[in-house]
């Protein structure tokens, strides 16, 4: 029992990093994802091509490789080294913005054309139409897929250790080999499970909050 508490204690030192990666990624990747989604819906062909290549690369290569690339590429190219944690955040934001943008885009495309047309005939500007009419409906529509992606983010934070950023999973592995026991990994599993349970709960609440209307 003492060992379990002790393990919780040790692993919780990495919990702050795990949660910080999680929060900072959401904070930057969501707005960036919206921008990418809007840009992809625009008629600018060059912009469209750039975004298509970006999505292709991010979705088509392992995230582990992306994290290593973001951290080491500046070093190999310009002998430039920088903060590991910052590299993790940059890699996560670039990666998750790509996935989020596709969810937002499908959400925006799923809103019937008539909504935009009605807003236009009432004199709403394009910006007003997006923020007052389209976006609120998009949020409702994409909640289930967002919940999926956000839950996956919690678990993906464990990849940060690949460039030496110490988070929950890295500490658990270290303890496992140190104690020659599977217990630290079980404790880490419990921590991730707890985090995901909280997220599921929050998304359920959100879905309830938006259930006062249905989109026909």
């Amino acid at each position: 029992m003492d060992n379990i508490l002790n393990l919780f204690n040790i692993l919780s030192q990495g919990l702050f990093t795990t949660i910080l990666i999680f929060i900072l990624t959401l904070l930057f990747a969501i707005p960036l994802g919206i921008v990418v989604a809007i840009a992809q819906n625009s008629k600018n062909k060059i912009l469209n091509a750039i975004i298509k290549i970006y999505i292709l690369i991010i979705r088509g290569t392992p995230m582990m490789l992306q994290i290593i690339f973001v951290y080491f590429a500046p070093y190999y190219l310009f002998k430039l080294s920088y903060d590991r944690f910052l590299a993790v955040i940059i890699a996560f934001v670039i990666n998750y913005a790509a996935y989020f943008s596709q969810i937002f885009r499908s959400g925006i495309l799923s809103i019937p054309k008539g909504q935009k047309e009605a807003a236009f005939t009432l004199g709403f500007s394009k910006t007003q139409t997006f923020f007052k009419i389209i976006l609120p409906q998009v949020i409702k529509r994409i909640l289930p897929s967002m919940s999926n992606e956000v839950i996956s983010l919690v678990k993906t934070t464990s990849l940060a250790q690949i460039i030496g950023v110490t988070e929950v999973f890295a500490l658990a592995q270290k303890q496992a080999s140190f104690q020659f026991s599977i217990l630290p990994l079980c404790i880490a599993a419990l921590i991730y499970l707890a985090l995901c349970t909280i997220i599921t709960f929050v998304f359920n609440k959100l879905e309830k909050k938006f259930s006062y209307y249905t989109i026909t």
Binding site: E117, T121, G123
Partner: peptide
Amino acid sequence: MNLECGMVFQNFNLFPH
């Protein structure tokens, strides 16, 4: 001109939210 015209659609297009 847009504001001088009002349009009623076949499918209503009310804002559901």
